[in-house]
Design a protein around this nucleic acid. Structure first.
Lengths: 319, 319
DNA sequence: GTGTAATTTTTGCAAATGTAATTTTTGATT
DNA sequence: AATCAAAAATTACATTTGCAAAAATTACAC
């Protein structure tokens, strides 16, 4: 073996570290003061660090969040995770998460990262777009990735896409269609319509998909207002669903559940979504923990934006 | 003013520090990951350090002693201070301090730093010499700097000098004289004696003086056995004495007290001592706190060897 | 003493860091 | 819209650090 011999006494290590870190001498100076060679000082510092003799502490509340984010990246396999600070009182996640998404989007737009942005819809997304500053993004196109409900107001597909386009001085296009085909309608026939074809083509050119996630309770607008006639939340739960992304219901492992509803969703399917180069998911809340995990496991998510409370719940679940 | 504008948010600073210190990226990599320039990372790190955001902690019991030593250097104006670890039970300082002095001397001898070493005498010094390893120091001369008492055994001037010379294979020379002239004896006449003249000449060539300090109580052998007839500890205390170095009694400020005894000491006087290029004082114990401080204030001491208990007592006094 | 092995020190160099000068960009003002 | 001032990025360079190869020293066995 050729491992270099390094076994200085702790007193020596401590003194080297002390001169170097506390007194802020250079390694050369430490060597001179202590009457040894610079090499030994250099090695001593490495040994001390390896032995955990020196511990750097970063005294900032932000560090906890950074650690949380890194842990999320590791455990969920996403390449970026952002934890907005949740309001611990109300745990109204829409505010912080919306702001974080807005900030993230703003940065990207400013860098000119995207020309065609695909949107889903929901309260989280609406909040984010509200907080987006008014700015001009040259040649940007906002494209809705799924159909909308007939009700639902400003957080519906129409409201979300138009609000964003308005904020950014962009054009937008959306499906003039419900989320789900009614049972019996032939999907191919329906989509053969010229307007839909043009829109579907646009979806192939997206360079960013902004996703949200819904759970399978009445809290989800999709569930409470958008499900096709005859489909109940209980059906979906029975099929293993933990929530939806773009109207496609996933089980805990991230696979689409075996239920006809996934075949009748109007819009970009998950395979198509995977071809969009950049994908961000903004979602938070205790009830969404499972679907967020599922979406990440499915590999849909590159950037996850959530809040610290939800993040901790997810990590707890993944432990 | 031309102070560069650096006012990053704490979140930014924390993230930079986190990547740099926790993840151990280089500054360039941090810059790349965070999408900023290396310069900003570099500045951020400096700002964070300046703001106390990063705190390096050295987890070692030795650090406390290093800090103690640095504090002693600063407060006492000595260039080197060594605190041996005292036995907190017995607080027998002779062992640790003796060992520390022995170690310090051994290092110097090994480097061939000295050719002529001046000694005082006392228990501390005797202990140190006992712990000195047997070694050969080419051409070394051991010289006693003061006279001795007629009693006192192996810690007396004779015992100390001969023991050290024996350990180091050196020659030694000493005063065949008491510490103090009896009242009435003329100093000049007494020292005109040929043997003394030769010895005094040797004292001019010393390159190291090994000093100890005594207090003004019966615990000091000098006080209990060596004082000239008619001089009592009370006399000395009344004159402001806090202890002695080389038989010269000092007041709290380090000045020699106005008492005839300082004029009748046989040996190197303090002015002569100051001409010895290197001077080390080994002393510890609660009762010696004042005299050690005094000796340092007088500028007699370059290297102070004591124990941590005494060190803390001294710093407490100097606060 | 002599040779050999192990260790330490020296030396050299590439990478990383700290810093200042220059250029570019940005934002504000007119 | 043009101009200016301020801020930021780029560039360039000196210092410091990390690391490996070569040289010197030391330790040890014979």
């Amino acid at each position: 073996m050729n491992s270099i011999q390094t076994d200085e006494t702790e007193a020596f290590l401590a003194e080297v570290c002390w001169h170097y870190y506390v007194n802020e001498l250079t390694q050369s100076d430490v060597a001179r003061v202590m009457g040894v060679t610079r090499l030994r000082v250099n090695r001593a510092l490495q040994e001390a660090r390896a032995a955990g003799l020196v511990r750097v502490e970063i005294a900032s509340p932000f560090v906890a969040r950074l650690e949380l984010q890194a842990e999320l990246c590791r455990k969920l396999g996403v390449s970026e995770a952002i934890c907005a600070p949740a309001d611990p009182e109300t745990h109204d996640y829409h505010g912080p998460v919306g702001a974080a998404l807005a900030h993230w989007l703003e940065k990207g737009f400013r860098e000119g990262a995207w020309k065609a942005v695909g949107l889903s819809w929901g309260l989280t997304l609406k909040t984010a777009i509200q907080r987006l500053p008014r700015m001009t993004v040259e040649g940007l196109e906002v494209v809705s990735m799924i159909g909308g409900t007939s009700q639902g107001g400003s957080f519906n597909a129409f409201g979300v896409a138009s609000a964003m386009a308005d904020k950014l001085g962009a054009n937008y296009s959306l499906f003039s269609a419900p989320i789900y085909l009614s049972p019996g309608t032939d999907r191919a026939t329906f989509l053969a319509e010229g307007a839909f074809q043009a829109h579907l083509a646009r979806l192939q050119t997206l360079d960013l998909a902004v996703l949200v996630a819904g759970d399978v309770t009445e809290r989800s607008f999709l569930v409470s207002m958008g499900l096709p006639t005859g489909v109940t939340p209980q059906d979906l739960l029975a099929a293993g669903a933990v929530g939806d992304v773009l109207g496609h219901f996933l089980d805990a492992s991230g696979a689409e559940i075996a239920h006809p509803i996934n075949g009748s969703a109007i819009g970009l399917d998950l395979e198509g979504l995977m071809r969009v180069p950049q994908r961000v998911l903004a979602a938070a809340g205790q009830h969404k923990v499972d679907v967020i995990i599922a979406a990440c496991r499915r590999g849909l998510v590159q950037t996850l934006i959530t809040d610290d409370v939800t993040a901790r719940l997810m990590l707890e679940k993944l432990r």
